[in-house]
Design a protein around this nucleic acid. Structure first.
Length: 411
RNA sequence: GGGGGUGUACCAGAGUGGCCAAAUGGGGCAGACUGUAAAUCUGCUGACGUACGUCUUCGGUGGUUCGAAUCCAUCCGCCCCCA
């Protein structure tokens, strides 16, 4: 009786852990690993690797992290591998131009910011953090050759990315080919049970399996989470595509960005970025099918996201800010950033609209500002003004709106 | 080692002596319409200058020329073929 109960409990756990996972390699691997480690009376060791190159985490990363968190809640052990070695070589993925290699201090610094951000989702204090330069730096060339001998060119060319580039005659540097092998070698060093990543990591993770077997270790399970699409609804969320919601974005930004996703993306966001229960998710879905305005579900999602990374209170505030700033037609509802008149550089008493906007916006060229004004993006006290050279006497309570977002009030 | 090709703005891709700050498409920005959605329409998309204009830009450098993305020399990157 109790055996049956335990069994169904285990099945439930597995189902929960498999939720939203796009690829598991091998398919029933998780079940077997769990049974295996239970027999050994130990917890799973789960590897999560990252390169400390661009230290800004976004909701796309969080998809994997949230899954890691589920494992952590069951007290499995997380090992975070900082690719300190690989980062110093440079990131080989895609067509990124040769990134300048990072020095040790930069790697350290990036790793730290990364880890700080990880702690927004997972419990870093319960995770083990290791740097792969610890072992890769030590590797004598003979050992490297030996490692390389375990992988064939044909195996490497199976990777879509390489295959495609080969066909298209775009260059592939040798170190790029070696990269997956190094990543796989990390798994050998850690002897992990599972490696976790986005589906774009499938090949590299599979390489880990291969190399572990070649080193007489039990190969890791590979679990790949789907890649979250970015705000454009087309490409994957990625900092270089400038379509991300960052984990450290302000509540207002998170809200606005979420509202701007295309409707097609709502279900994906509901599934991958929120922490609603699956029952709640189903309810929301059926509301949508019944003809609920998608906008409302977006608001729910936005608030849920903000609650996760900030607080419920700030989520509410962000919503009312959004309503006033963007949904309300009334100029007075918008919130204006106060700008001290004395901080403005004037020519005598006056300055042109161009100069004023340039000073308010900052870090933008004057040509850009001129275009904005001429294209009708600027309002003074709610009056659209398209003459960049309109002379202004800056006076108290003058309100300037530039584009949809930026509103200023002179004080 | 030999032969051929190629390198243009965020990306793709025209341009092969002046009319080129460089066609076209994508992307991006702004406006109209909206739900900061989609679709659609319009404008903009090197910098500085209120026009006329000036300056920087077509892999790097140096030349020819009144004038060069365009011609020449040289160097660099990449690709292909042969060895």
């Amino acid at each position: 009786m109790s055996g049956l109960f335990l069994f169904s409990k285990t099945m439930e756990t597995i189902k929960h852990l498999q939720e939203n996972v796009e690829i598991t390699l091998p398919e029933n691997g998780l079940e077997e690993k769990l049974a295996h480690t239970q027999r050994q009376n130990r917890k799973l060791i789960i590897k999560l690797g990252f390169d400390p190159t661009a230290p800004d985490l976004h909701l796309g990363h969080a998809v994997v992290l949230k899954k890691i968190k589920q494992f952590q809640e069951l007290e499995h052990k997380i090992v975070i591998v900082v690719g300190s070695f690989t980062a110093q070589i440079g990131d080989p993925t895609g067509k990124n131009k040769s990134r300048k290699p990072l020095n040790a201090a930069e790697v350290q610094h990036n790793a730290q910011t990364y880890i700080n951000q990880l702690s927004k989702v997972i419990d870093v204090s319960q995770a083990q953090i290791v740097f792969n330069s610890n072992w890769l730096d030590q590797l004598p060339f003979s050992a490297i050759i030996q490692l390389l001998s375990k992988v064939t060119v044909a195996q490497l060319l199976q990777r879509n990315d390489f295959n495609k580039r080969l066909k298209e005659n775009t260059p592939i540097a040798i170190h790029e080919l070696v990269y997956p092998i190094l990543q796989g070698f990390d798994s050998v060093q850690i002897n992990c049970d599972i490696e976790m990543g986005g589906t774009d990591q499938l090949f590299n993770c599979a390489m880990g399996r291969h190399l572990m077997e070649a080193h007489d270790l039990s190969p890791q399970i590979v679990m790949c989470m789907p890649l979250l699409k970015g705000l454009d609804g087309k490409e994957k969320m990625s900092k270089s595509l400038n379509n991300t919601i960052g984990l450290t974005d302000t509540p207002n930004d998170m809200f606005g960005k979420t509202m701007s996703i295309p409707d097609d993306l709502i279900l994906e966001f509901l599934e991958l970025t929120t922490d609603f229960s699956s029952t709640q998710k189903k309810e929301f879905k059926s509301c949508l099918e019944k003809g609920e305005n998608p906008m409302n579900l977006k608001k729910v999602i936005a608030k849920n996201i903000i609650t996760q990374y900030h607080s419920a209170e700030e989520a509410e505030q962000a919503e009312s800010f959004f309503k006033n700033q963007f949904q309300s037609q009334r100029f007075e509802d918008k919130s204006f950033v106060s700008v001290n008149i004395s901080s403005l550089q004037t020519e005598g008493e006056t300055l042109s609209l161009l100069q004023l906007c340039h000073q308010l916006r900052g870090k933008v060229t004057k040509s850009e500002i001129r275009r904005l004004i001429e294209s009708g993006a600027v309002r003074i006290n709610n009056i659209k003004t398209t003459d960049p050279y309109l002379l202004l006497f800056p006076t108290n309570h003058t309100k300037i709106q530039i584009g949809k977002r930026d509103c200023y009030e002179l004080v």
